[in-house]
Design a protein around this nucleic acid. Structure first.
Lengths: 137, 137
DNA sequence: CAATCTGTAATGCTTAATATTACAGTACGT
DNA sequence: ACGTACTGTAATATTAAGCATTACAGATTG
């Protein structure tokens, strides 16, 4: 699984716990244990989709822009990892009935699998992730 | 998604269409467009779990060992890719409540996602994959 | 105008996936 | 018995993907 997805969840959860002030990419990256530039790349995506707001300059940073209940993991998956389940089939042999059709069949099956997983992920909002994180401190 | 999974499906589908004779790793690898050694590695796994039988020497190869209805994609997923959905979380910051708990929370969520996807994959047997492959020749 | 941020491109590094080579072991045909 | 055609697997090389790092422009504040 793409780690952009987990970094996005991590970042949003972090921001959810700081609802009143801006958090810097440095602070989030320190919490997540990755490079600040990587966090900014992920946050840039989240901003583009309206989940967070950002502000440049001194005292700037990132802050949640929606209600915690409105954001679920499927939303985040879609923007960070859609298609990640799809198998990267090599060029298979068109002369063979299996080779010629397998890619089409698998793509359709995996697309369904992703949709199915989506139903599961929709049940987790950031609010619930925050609660789970808070449970054992 | 791990390509061992799709190669296993490809191989089993190939064998399903040759129920009466043995197929060589060369023939399967040509159909799948990958190196024979890689196919043998995957087939070795399938054999270990009883899905296929193999025979060495002249006229040898691989052949299906079960009923096509008995093998579903979840069975294959489990032996080739179990845990593939799990995020590879970097060492996050234990001093931060988010960093300290996120991995545990995500692991549990992703485990659930995999189980959920399993319910979907169980509905596809190799027999059905064969039928889908045959549909448009 | 100096300090502190975001935003993003470019480059380098590290690890995972895959291909390739090599060779031992097994079965068959003659 | 011996050459040929296979599987089985380890070791190595190559390629691709993921990620870190560097660099720097632009925005904002005091």
């Amino acid at each position: 699984m793409n780690s952009d997805f987990t970094l996005a969840i991590h970042s949003l959860t972090f921001l959810a716990l700081q609802p009143d002030r801006m958090s810097t990419s440095d602070a989030i990256s320190e919490s997540a244990g990755v490079h600040p530039v990587r966090i900014r790349k992920v946050l840039s995506l989240l901003k583009k989709h309206g989940f967070i707001k950002s502000k440049e300059g001194t005292g700037g940073g990132f802050i949640f822009a929606m209600d915690l209940n409105e954001v679920n993991l499927w939303d985040i998956y879609k923007i960070t990892s859609e298609g990640a389940l799809q198998p990267k089939c090599p060029e298979s042999n068109e002369k063979c009935i299996v080779g010629a059709n397998m890619q089409r069949v698998l793509c359709s099956i995996f697309f369904g699998a992703e949709e199915h997983m989506g139903e599961y992920l929709k049940d987790y909002t950031i609010k619930e992730v925050v609660e789970l994180v808070n449970k054992r401190q």
